[in-house]
Simulated scan of single mutants.
Amino acid sequence: MHINMKYYIVSIGAIFIALGIGMLVGFNLNYDQELSKQQANIISDLDNKFEDLKTTNDNLEESLSSLTTDYDKAIEFINNNSDKIIVDGLLDKNIGIISTNENYDYSTEIEEIITKANGKIAFNIIITNNIENKEKMEELSTKLDIELKTTQDLVKYISECLKLEDGESKLQELQTLELIKLNYISSEFLNYDSVILSGGNETKADEKKFKLIDETLIASLKEQNKNIVAVQKTNAKISYVDMYAKNKITTIDNMDEGIGQVSLVISLTQKEINGNFGRLETAESLLPYKK
């Protein structure tokens, strides 16, 4: 019987394919076993590492809890003893207070802090809502024979009065027109060292008003080389800290706390320390320190 060569070629090819399939299956079976072993080793290694990380994490949480407890105790101690800590801290310092929002005025509390630290109060001025009143501005210009066209002109004029011998009488004129409230002014107001700006708000952040009043005041006081510290209370619904910080002045966001009062005293006595201090996320640290 004649056998076609194609039959041999197909048969031989089939044999080789069968052998190839057999080898491949065998290899894969062996590979799967090796792979399973490798996977088991990796999983075991990951389990061990996870346990190590868990132990490390537990230790860190325990350490953090301990540090938090110590931190809270330290703050509590400072808050409870702040009067003793700040006593004589402002001795021989003559400090002015300016509140730029008559609807959120806590300047008397700031006066108490200065007094407790045995500092002197140079003046306590509250800028009223009438500061933008054009009619009153014109009346003042006529009365004093000066040119005041804008709110910025008037705010700068207030700061200028604080370096004039007859500044008190000029400020009294401003009070008469209800442009400011002059809560207090000392006979030694000309020699003031620093100014505390009280900020914050209970309603909304008025950036336009801030630029007109606060920024103008800050720029004018900087020209006179005065140390400026802006403060607010922890319960301020609207924080002004960010806006003050942009003007490169020191801020304290918790002046109603004992530790905030310590920060205030440090900032008033050490002009070279500049930054944002307190409890807000924007604060660089809780207390002022030399960098």
Rank of each mutant, 00 (worst) to 15 (best):
K6R: 13
K271T: 12
I98V: 12
D153Q: 04
L287P: 11
E223A: 10
L154Y: 01
E281N: 13
T269E: 10
S198N: 11
I75D: 02
N235W: 10
Q38P: 05
N247W: 04
D70L: 14
I228P: 08
Y8G: 01
G20H: 05
S239G: 04
L90N: 05
F16V: 14
T282D: 08
L171C: 00
L19K: 01
I252C: 02
K120R: 12
I113F: 03
N225M: 06
D206L: 06
L287G: 08
K37W: 08
A74E: 12
E34V: 11
L148T: 05
I126D: 02
M23Y: 15
I9G: 03
S285L: 06
M255R: 06
E272P: 07
N183V: 02
I12T: 10
L164Y: 08
Y104E: 06
E165I: 09
I213V: 15
V229Q: 02
S169W: 03
Q38H: 14
E168F: 07
G258R: 04
G167P: 10
L24N: 12
L154C: 02
I125R: 04
K54I: 04
Y289A: 12
K208M: 11
N133C: 07
E147Q: 13
Y289H: 14
N30K: 15
G258K: 03
I228L: 05
I158M: 00
K271E: 15
G89N: 05
E272D: 14
D256I: 02
I127A: 03
S186Q: 06
D153W: 01
K291H: 12
N124S: 09
E132T: 15
M243Y: 15
C161K: 00
I17C: 03
E284N: 14
E61D: 14
L162I: 05
Q175I: 00
D83Y: 11
Y8Q: 02
G13D: 02
I114C: 04
E281D: 14
T282G: 10
I273K: 10
D88E: 13
D92T: 12
Q33W: 10
F123R: 02
Y244Q: 04
T176R: 13
V229I: 12
R279M: 11
L212N: 13
K181G: 00
Q175V: 08
L64S: 12
I180W: 03
E168T: 12
E207G: 08
S107Q: 02
D70K: 15
K49F: 12
K120T: 09
I97E: 00
F277M: 06
Q175N: 14
G13W: 07
T128R: 09
D253Q: 06
D70N: 13
S11Y: 14
G119P: 09
L264T: 07
S63M: 12
Q39E: 15
K84L: 11
L174V: 08
S285A: 14
L264C: 06
C161F: 00
G260T: 00
A74K: 14
A230C: 07
L268A: 03
P288V: 02
I78K: 09
Q232A: 00
E215L: 08
S186K: 08
L35G: 10
N30S: 13
K54C: 01
